[in-house]
């Protein structure tokens, strides 16, 4: 019976203290009855293998003990979908940008890579995993702790049961363009154009201080490029304001203008656009140092601008796919019943 005692001991370990003896006595009695019945049937004592078979049929000690315990969870079924949603948001909005910026810095920023002990690109990228796991562990850990606390409060106050259907958000059509954002875009681009036209010259004089900023000859490309983009955005926003629903054509125009904009920004970062800064009260050596520092920091911000640009372009492509899918998908449910605007 040593095997049986070992089994009961293992079950006992996981049981609540107050019920240990009682449960074990009852379980032991049941198993003994089973063994006894089998022995009567066979007309002999059971061997170890036969006892083992009975115990195996009963199940793993932890699982057997678990059936006596109240259902317990860190985050229950009510909050779990929200918890999973928040984890996805944390992953997408914190960890993914974190990884992209790191990869960008290590790929394009030679000075950042040089600061790394190995100095090589692969070595620098490989070293990402340590801090990444730490960041992921910390982010997910904090979210889990917050939700575990919420679960405890929810269990006590049942605050999730207090809700009002009238407070639910309105039905959302992802291809609908809000008029407020179109008006904002229109106004912002108009103001930008008015200001931009004023700095057409590559030599900028700042107010009464007589400070002069001299830009590189390539400035004219940026000037006309950004002006063209601003006009294109004004036109798109105007059409969006009148017809507030994304179409494939307009979504494609937005993708093209965004890609051109990002390309111009990337070029601007690397162009060394500041040639000279002249301030009457500051020594030329000092202003040259300032101009070089600004050019250097613009150059260093290139990876970030590039990654942000890739993300913007990806979102634009996603919008085109979404519009295309909406065009081809048969209408159903609320939309079919007239609840959503149709194209």
């Amino acid at each position: 019976m040593e095997l049986l005692d070992r089994y009961l001991q293992a079950v006992k370990f996981w049981l609540p203290k107050a019920q240990k003896q009682d449960i074990i006595a009852e379980l032991s009695e049941d198993i003994c009855s089973q063994i006894e019945e089998k022995e009567t049937e066979l007309g002999r004592k059971l061997n170890e293998a036969e006892v083992e078979a009975i115990l195996k049929q009963l199940g793993r000690p932890l699982l057997v003990a678990n059936r006596y315990l109240p259902q317990q969870y860190l985050i229950g079924p009510v909050l779990f979908p929200i918890y999973r949603f928040v984890l996805k948001i944390v992953g997408l909005c914190y960890l993914v940008p974190w990884v992209l910026v790191w990869i960008g810095l290590m790929t394009f920023g030679l000075s950042d890579r040089a600061q790394h002990p190995s100095g090589s690109l692969i070595g620098a990228l490989a070293s990402l995993w340590g801090p990444l796991w730490l960041a992921a562990f910390f982010a997910f850990g904090v979210v889990t702790i917050v939700f575990a606390i919420l679960e405890r409060s929810q269990a006590k106050s049942r605050f999730l049961e207090d809700w009002d259907p009238r407070k639910l958000p309105p039905v959302r059509d992802p291809n609908q363009i809000s008029r407020a954002s179109s008006i904002f875009e229109l106004a912002a681009n108009t103001v930008f154009c008015m200001w931009w036209v004023g700095i057409r010259s590559p030599i900028i004089v700042l107010g009464q201080s007589a400070a002069r900023i001299t830009l590189a000859p390539a400035w004219r490309y940026f000037f006309w490029g950004f002006l063209f983009l601003a006009f294109a955005n004004i036109a798109t926003s105007g059409v969006n304001l009148l017809r507030p629903h994304w179409t494939r054509a307009r979504a494609s125009v937005r993708l093209v203008t965004d890609v051109i904009g990002v390309a111009l920004f990337c070029w601007l970062c690397k162009a060394g656009i500041l040639v000279e800064i002249s301030i009457p009260t500051v020594a030329p050596a000092k202003t040259l140092e300032i101009a070089n520092a600004i050019n250097l920091w613009m150059s260093r911000s290139f990876p970030i601008v590039f990654i942000v640009g890739v993300v913007i372009a990806a979102l634009d492509v996603h919008r085109i796919v979404r519009v295309k899918t909406a065009d081809t998908r048969p209408l159903r449910g609320v939309a079919a019943a007239g609840g959503l605007p149709q194209q």
Partner: peptide, 24 residues
């Protein structure tokens, strides 16, 4: 009845139940 005989009685009536379910 006690646990074991209860289990047997249930099994005889076509409602077999294992000890891990019955006792809890």
């Amino acid at each position: 009845q006690y646990g074991y005989t209860l289990r047997k009685a249930l099994a005889e009536h076509g409602m077999a139940i294992d000890e891990g379910t019955l006792y809890p």
